[in-house]
Computed example of a mutant assay.
Amino acid sequence: MFLSRLIIRSINFIDINFTKGKNVIVGRNNAGKSNIIKAIDLILGESSPTYEKLENIKETDFYTGKEIIKSADEIVIYCELQREPGEPLNWELIEKAPGTWIRKNLC
């Protein structure tokens, strides 16, 4: 299983597609590379998203230039995982995970 897509919606809309294997994030200083990693860790890190992790998001994260997200604005982070054909999944465990939305491909 691998992370195939990451969407971050804040002031800007970021939609990144990943391929299986190694992916490299390149950009100039203060372009948002660390925030991409921070978003992935927030959703897919060692434990499920908690309020402690959410409190680590600052108003200056996920912004561009002088436009800073106000506390009333919403940040949406969406991660899509893809599995190899025939890769087994423990559906009972997955369905118990908080905040999990499952789209089962029946094709």
Rank of each mutant, 00 (worst) to 15 (best):
Arg5Asp: 09
Gly45Ile: 11
Thr19Trp: 04
Ile102Glu: 07
Asp15His: 09
Ile16Leu: 15
Ile57Leu: 15
Ala72Gly: 09
Asn56Gln: 14
Ile14Val: 10
Asp15Pro: 07
Gly45Glu: 01
Ser34Trp: 00
Arg83Ile: 11
Leu3Val: 15
Glu80Val: 08
Gly21Ala: 11
Phe18Lys: 04
Ala39Trp: 05
Lys20Asn: 11
Asn12Trp: 02
Ile8Gly: 12
Ile7Val: 15
Leu42Tyr: 06
Asp61Ala: 05
Asn17Ile: 06
Leu93Asn: 08
Glu52Cys: 02
Leu81Gln: 05
Leu54Met: 14
Pro98Leu: 13
Ala39Pro: 00
Asn90Cys: 09
Arg103Gln: 12
Val26Tyr: 02
Pro49Ala: 01
Asp15Glu: 13
Asn56Met: 11
Glu55Cys: 03
Glu52Asp: 14
Asn29Arg: 10
Ser48Val: 07
Gly27Gln: 15
Glu55Ile: 05
Ile77Lys: 10
Pro49Tyr: 00
Asn23Trp: 07
Ser48Tyr: 09
Leu54Tyr: 04
Lys53Gln: 13
Glu84Gln: 08
Leu3Gly: 11
Trp91Lys: 14
Ile36Leu: 07
Asp15Gly: 09
Ala39His: 06
Glu52Met: 03
Ile8Phe: 05
Asp73Ile: 01
Ile94Tyr: 01
Ser47Asn: 14
Ile37Leu: 10
Ser34Gln: 00
Glu67Asp: 13
Gly27Glu: 12
Lys38Gly: 00
Leu44Gly: 08
Leu89Met: 14
Gly27Asn: 04
Lys96Pro: 04
Gly99His: 02
Thr60Gln: 08
